[in-house]
């Protein structure tokens, strides 16, 4: 492929090939300071579905080692988003070395907090905010649980911020505005220098939270069986991991406290998190 980008994020290396220069240029800017991949674990391809699609109403088809049938192509101006989605897809479908949870994770004093929830639960924004308030951001999209010993491996990709959340952060740390994507306006927030520098430092998980944005502040404990069910739903590769996945997940739910938290705004979220962390 004509244009190539290579990056290592935490323990995973990616090779991104593109028919156009623009997405690769955007990736190079967004991932400045990240190490290169060496032998990549996963290959992503940003390709023109038909040869003329490179120039005429250019649209980007996301392809790679692992692909979804019937994937809808994105406009070239959203090529950076296509690359990010492509990398997410490779991890979601191909990762076998860690139990993957759709969760944000943050580290403080060697212990890690897991914030798990679907897209729209506000976990990415909350994680980004905590990452600027004394926590090391380990990741916002995927939490990587070691199959052998249950530690969390950092996977600090740029945080995908949507719509109103964009305004909460300093524009100097943001990638380009991707306007009117299928998910609204998006800008990517670079993790801070500390998060990038320490991307090879794992941490033992200490607390699982299920955050829910847009409700009056509240919290309740979550029983292990409920945690188990919700985390299997939040995992893209639990089934594929067989007994190793079962062991990792049962270890997690039987050893960690878990709470569901509701919050109306960012500040009350941060306050809730700090209080529960101190008690954990």
């Amino acid at each position: 492929m004509r244009h190539v980008f290579s990056v290592r994020v935490g323990p995973a290396g990616f090779r991104v090939g593109s028919d156009w220069r623009a997405p690769v240029a955007a990736l190079e800017a967004l991932y400045a300071g990240y190490p290169k991949a060496g032998i990549a674990d996963f290959t992503v391809r940003l390709e023109a579905a038909r040869p003329w699609r490179r120039w005429i109403r250019p649209s980007v088809t996301i392809a790679g080692d692992y692909m979804l049938p019937d994937a809808v192509p994105l406009a070239l101006r959203h090529g950076l988003l296509a690359a990010e989605m492509g990398m997410n897809l490779q991890m979601a479908l191909g990762a076998r070395r860690w139990l993957l949870l759709h969760a944000a994770s943050l580290e403080r004093d060697g212990r890690a907090l897991i914030l798990t929830g679907a897209s729209g639960s506000g976990k990415s924004t909350l994680a980004a905010l905590l990452g600027d308030r004394g926590w090391r951001l380990m990741g916002d999209e995927f939490a990587l649980i070691d199959l052998a010993n249950g530690v969390l491996h950092p996977f600090p990709r740029p945080v995908s911020l949507k719509n109103a959340a964009i305004a909460l952060f300093d524009a100097a740390r943001l990638g380009p505005l991707l306007a009117a994507t299928p998910k609204g306006d998006i800008r990517h927030l670079r993790p801070n220098a500390d998060a990038i520098a320490r991307m090879a430092e794992p941490a033992a998980p200490a607390l699982i939270l299920f955050p829910r944005f847009g409700h009056a502040a509240a919290e309740r404990p979550v029983a292990p069986s409920e945690v188990f069910v919700r985390l299997t739903q939040a995992s893209t590769n639990y089934v594929a991991l067989g007994e190793a996945g079962f062991d990792a997940l049962t270890r997690l739910v039987t050893t960690l406290p878990a709470r569901a938290i509701d919050y109306p705004d960012a500040d009350s979220a941060v306050a809730l998190v700090e209080r529960l962390w101190a008690a954990a």
Binding site: G38, I39, D41, G94, R96, R97, A240, G242
Partner: peptide
Amino acid sequence: LPDAAARIMADARFAAGEGRR
């Protein structure tokens, strides 16, 4: 094999084993 290649190959063997089961 180089370390990274060995890990990738180990993952592939693991995946094939689970697929077989």
